[in-house]
Design a protein around this nucleic acid. Sequence first.
RNA 1: GCCGGUGUGGUGGAAUAGGCAGACACCCGGGACUUAAAAUCCCGUGAAACGAAAGUUUCGUACCGGUUCGAUUCCGGUCACCGGCACCA
Length: 808
Amino acid sequence: MKYDHKAIEKKWQDEWDRRSAFVAKNDYTLPKYYALVEFPYPSGQGLHIGHPRPYTAMDIIARKKRMQGYNVLFPIGWDAFGLPTENYAIKNKIKPQIITERNIATFKRQIKSLGLSFDWSREINTTDPSYYKWTQWIFIQLFKHGLAYKKEIAVNFCTSCKVVLANEEVVGGVCERCGGEVVRKVKSQWLLKITDYAQRLIDGLADLDFIERVKTQQINWIGRSDGAEIKFGTSAGDEIVVFTTRPDTLFGATYMVMAPEHTLVEKWISAGIIKNADEVRAYQAQAARKSDFERTELQKEKTGVRLDGVVAINPANGVSIPIFISDYVLATYGTGAIMAVPGHDTRDWEFAKKFGLPIVQVVADSSGAEVDVESGAYTETETGVLVNSDYLNGLSVEDAKKKIVEVLGEKGLAQPKVNYKLRDWVFSRQRYWGEPVPMVWCEKCGWVPLPEDQLPLLLPDLDEYEPTDTGESPLAKCEEWVNTTCPKCGGPGKRETDVMPNWAGSSWYFIRYCDPHCDNALASPEAVKYWMPVDWYNGGMEHVTLHLLYSRFWAQFLYDIGVLPYSEPYLKRTAHGMILGENGEKMSKSRGNVINPDDIVEEYGADTLRLYEMFIGDFEKAAPWSPASIRGCRRFLERVAALPELISGEGVTPELERDFHKTIKKVTLDIDNMKFNTAIAAMMTLLNKINDTGRLTKDEFATFITLLCPFAPHLCEELNQTVLGSSELISLAKWPEWDESKTVDEEVEIAVQINGKLRGTLVIPMGAEQAAVVAAVRADEKFAPMLEGKTVIKEIYVPNKLVNLVIK
RNA sequence: GCCGGUGUGGUGGAAUAGGCAGACACCCGGGACUUAAAAUCCCGUGAAACGAAAGUUUCGUACCGGUUCGAUUCCGGUCACCGGCACCA
């Protein structure tokens, strides 16, 4: 058969559509399988050559599961709210709705050209009011349960996008999206209390089949620290509470540091206690001006100001110690104040050196010997032993931690405490192209959520989307929309003008797929119970601390309020590696190494592109694009297309039959382990063997194209129809099974070693006994002379692999 | 600095409950077919040395060392690169 991919591919894509081949069945008695890929943001650039990699991988898994008899849900949709579309709208004076529609059309055409077995009847779009109605509904539930609240906070503000960013969106001190400068600004924002779920988000990971690097990255991001809170008295009468993970070192605390924003500073200045108030104010102002970027840049040199006129008292020994403010102490973590132990903390040591503060050693090495804390902090905790610490002397660090909290705890001065790095999720964006927050401000009632029958709260149709210079949302200009009545008291009210971040819609989309047209719930409880949780979710590493964490948080919340019957949405999570440019660098316009998938589909066909993206290397690792290598995949498919010429009526050959069983086993297991590259290599090897054999049976040919079908479905459908004369879809055929006994060869070639060095090979019957193998080696004309006159002092035999004779 | 990952031919990559390193493919070289080229097919292809040849030997999985009959795989140390976090007390 001449392999004309252009004629074949469109034909079968249409045929799959016509027969609704991949539509998931709503028969909840069938065994189900839910395979999920991260739905794309339909950007103006069109599909990236990286997209087909995870899509094809999950497509192969979905197709194989379907062929194995599962009712498979493999859905797709569009995560379409977001800044790039809005920025494009501003620049080109086109409505975001229209741009989004266009981009989706392009993406859809491109994705369809790849022959992915998505269930298009369940296509969703986060910007569709029937979808974001339920995003808004979830927000209201969060509000009703006290998990959404509005607060004046210092937020990350991108000066270029003019928008507030979540901590997760600030990368290296600059805006993740545009690279613009990020400054801190105080604004009233909606926040979601993800911190309430910090521990559950850690604990939940234990039983999930997530790849290890995803788990550790989430755990590190949540950042649990076990320690204690300790109260320090002051000469001003107020108490300073600190959080520390090293309460054992309390006797070594020689000064204290508070964040410049700490409320006590303000209180003491107003009370006239602080004598150098001007200096303190100047430092506060300077710290507030610094952007995150400057803070990290300037971190080498410690700065700070001593509060003159007030001292603290170390509760362990009653010693008076000075108090400083410094921006190396963060207002947002712990209590915003620390006890400084310069002998055993690197940061405190640097600060103490700079300000000439005393450095006291309270931990010695395991032998109890003094260590030098003048030239650097001693931070060893495993083997350290306490010294200069009264009743803690001689204890290990671990024991001392417990003891001191116990002793001070009795006086009410200390208690165990757990802290997390995770902060609440800043949920407001002062932009246009997002879900409106369904809340009304009423002077009398405060913030009031819209009643459910007023959802969705539609995004008004504007002509101007520019954010204002004050950082207010463009919606604020739309007075007829802003001014409304309070749903509670009927008095005048004003709508919230900020919109949700683009992480909102993607935090629950996998639930909507279960029942995408449901109009009285996120999805019907029966559908959710049947389809959820997602059996296998593949996505990028870049979403581990954002989307993946946020969506687990929402799922846990929805479980708590009885909407989801499972608290964890995804059973299994894997991550794909990036496709890099030919030069091994990340693909980008500026580097000029971008490959357009349309060109590849046009020249080689979708089947070749699919095959190549799976063959390129280890699925989890990044791999450079190679225009030369892709030809090898095309050649393989051409040889497959030529295979029918070899079909003969003669029976199977036992050797080839064994090769088939081995290949079925290998491909089946490799797909389950995402080892697509070796699965393809196995099929290539089998094809080479068929060509060497020179003939194969019709059944064997059918088996071959069934195995290959998930990888190159168009060609296999065509061969199934034209060569085998089938009117059924091979995409829905039964997956081949192997007979274990037929995967075993009768004879096997083993390695023969003498003194651990390879000396040759020997063919022996499969499963031969050690004595027989050694005898065969001794009798062999090649090995016998090597053994002559020597004594064998040890025989090592690994069945069917190797024999090693140690001689003297 | 901390956490995680990765280092294998000219290239992408195989092979680790320790057991014939380099599967499969790309590139390259030689040959067949062709007036010629492309395509296709066949053969070769880690390096070095010896040999007329079949072949033989030595070296070789970032580097140094250890355990073992045997190490790409395990252990200790070093270096390089990639990703994440980063004054989190």
